[in-house]
Amino acid sequence: MSVLPIKLFFDGGCRPNPGKIEGAVVRKGVVHYRHDLGEGDNSDAEWLAAIHALELAAGHGDLDVVLLGDSTVVVTQANGRAPCRSAALKAHRARFAEIALGFDRVRLRHIGRAQNLAGIALARLHPR
């Protein structure tokens, strides 16, 4: 019997940039917000949202996950195709890798902003 991987959409942002960080993760149609992620810039926000996605998946006992996000920086750095150019990004990548050890398989895929359910959920918090 084959078990399908669990898809988790993630997105992070801050207002202003840099500023207070918030993030969202969508797992099985349910939005999980975090409004207490500290201060930082957009890259910090995206990394912290990806980390939150892994923590959420671990809490649910998921073992095979696909993280879907619209941050090229996080997806390429997490997949080892781009270097982390600051100490903060290196620390985020190390934390992500540490959590990922608890899974059978973790994959990250880049998706467009319009397809990112977590980004859509965050945008609804701040209508223009």
Rank of each mutant, 00 (worst) to 15 (best):
97 A>E: 13
66 V>T: 10
123 A>C: 08
46 E>L: 10
101 L>Q: 14
1 M>Q: 13
100 A>K: 07
18 P>K: 14
53 A>D: 07
25 V>N: 01
86 S>G: 08
48 L>C: 10
115 Q>R: 13
3 V>H: 11
93 R>Y: 06
35 H>Q: 11
69 G>A: 09
90 K>Q: 15
60 H>M: 15
70 D>Y: 01
82 A>Q: 06
81 R>N: 11
47 W>V: 09
46 E>G: 05
82 A>P: 00
32 H>F: 09
113 R>D: 10
101 L>C: 01
33 Y>D: 02
83 P>W: 01
118 A>T: 12
44 D>V: 15
25 V>F: 02
40 G>C: 09
66 V>N: 03
67 L>R: 05
71 S>W: 00
55 E>M: 10
28 K>S: 05
27 R>F: 03
26 V>Y: 03
122 L>R: 08
36 D>K: 06
5 P>Q: 09
40 G>N: 08
2 S>A: 14
20 K>A: 05
117 L>P: 12
7 K>I: 07
19 G>Q: 00
106 V>Q: 04
51 I>G: 05
99 I>C: 04
100 A>F: 07
99 I>M: 06
51 I>R: 03
104 D>R: 15
37 L>W: 00
82 A>R: 02
12 G>K: 02
99 I>V: 12
58 A>W: 14
63 L>F: 00
45 A>T: 00
99 I>Q: 02
15 R>S: 03
97 A>V: 06
32 H>S: 06
96 F>I: 10
108 L>E: 05
90 K>M: 14
80 G>F: 06
55 E>I: 09
7 K>M: 11
24 A>D: 03
31 V>W: 00
92 H>Q: 01
44 D>S: 13
120 I>P: 01
79 N>M: 13
48 L>T: 07
39 E>R: 03
78 A>K: 00
24 A>F: 02
63 L>D: 00
51 I>S: 03
123 A>Y: 02
60 H>R: 15
86 S>M: 06
104 D>P: 07
